[in-house]
Nucleic acid binder design. Structure first.
Lengths: 103, 103
DNA sequence: GCCTCATATGTCGGCTCTGACATATATTTT
DNA sequence: AAAATATATGTCAGAGCCGACATATGAGGC
C-alpha cells in the first residue's frame, strides 16, 4: 500500500474512525482497504485476460457498468461480498481468492 | 463441503438461484458459502484461543452476542465484510485470511 | 428440580449497498 | 476531428445487513 494510493482512496470517500496514523486510518481499517484492493486488482486482471468490456462483465454478473467501474476502482460503496461474488462468477476458485489475498 | 452441512445451511434460509444441482445451488453459490464458512470457522477458532464468550467478543468488535452467534453459524444474514472486519479486529492479518480461504 | 451462564433464534428500525440511470470524460477508430 | 466505444462519477429508490433486544435452548453445578 503506497501513501499515494491511500490518499487517493481517502479523497474518494474513505473515512477514518481512529487517530494517530498517517491518514487517520487504524491498522484494521488499512488492512480492510488493502484487502479490497487486492480483490479489485484480481477482478481487473481477470477481465483483461478475457478481453471484455466493463459492460460485458456487468451483464455476465448481473450488474451494471457503473458498478463494475466502482468495483475496479476500489470505491467505498462496494462490498467485499460483491467483489467475491463477481470473482467467482468469472471463474475464480476459493483457492485463487485465498492466494490473491495472502499475496 | 459435506452434503449434510449444505443441507443444514439450506434449511436456515439459504436460497438458490439456479437449478440442476444437489441442493439447487450453483457452483458459484456453493463456493461463496464455503468461503464464508471458512471465515466463520477461523473466527470460532480465534475466539476459542482467547477463551472469551460471544458476548465479550461482541463488545470487542462493537457488535452484539446474537450477531456473533450468527457469524459463527454462517447465517445468511451475515456479510463477508463483517466477518473480515471481525477477524481483523481480533488480530488476524490479511495473510492469515488468505491462508484460511485457500486452505 | 432450580439457578447461572453461554449460545441460538426471531424480529425490527435504521443505515448501507445495490442495480439502474444519466452524464461526463477518456480512448480508439474511421 | 468527429464518431464510436470504453470507463468514470453522481444520484436514487429499493433491497439487504446492521446492532439491539427479547426470548428460547443448552450445559453445568447445586
Amino acid at each position: 500500500m503506497t501513501s499515494a494510493r491511500m490518499a487517493k482512496l481517502k479523497a474518494k470517500g474513505w473515512r477514518s474512525g481512529s487517530a494517530a496514523e498517517f491518514l487517520g486510518l487504524s491498522p484494521e481499517e488499512s488492512y480492510f482497504i488493502e484487502l479490497k484492493l487486492k480483490l479489485s486488482d484480481e477482478l481487473k486482471k481477470r477481465r483483461a485476460k478475457r478481453n471484455i468490456s466493463q459492460h460485458q462483465l456487468a451483464q455476465l454478473i448481473g450488474s451494471s457498468q457503473s458498478r463494475v467501474a466502482k468495483m475496479e476502482r476500489g470505491d467505498a460503496s462496494v462490498s467485499i461480498d460483491l467483489l467475491v461474488k463477481s470473482l467467482l462468477a468469472v471463474g475464480a476458485k476459493p483457492k485463487d481468492l485465498g492466494r490473491s489475498i495472502a499475496a
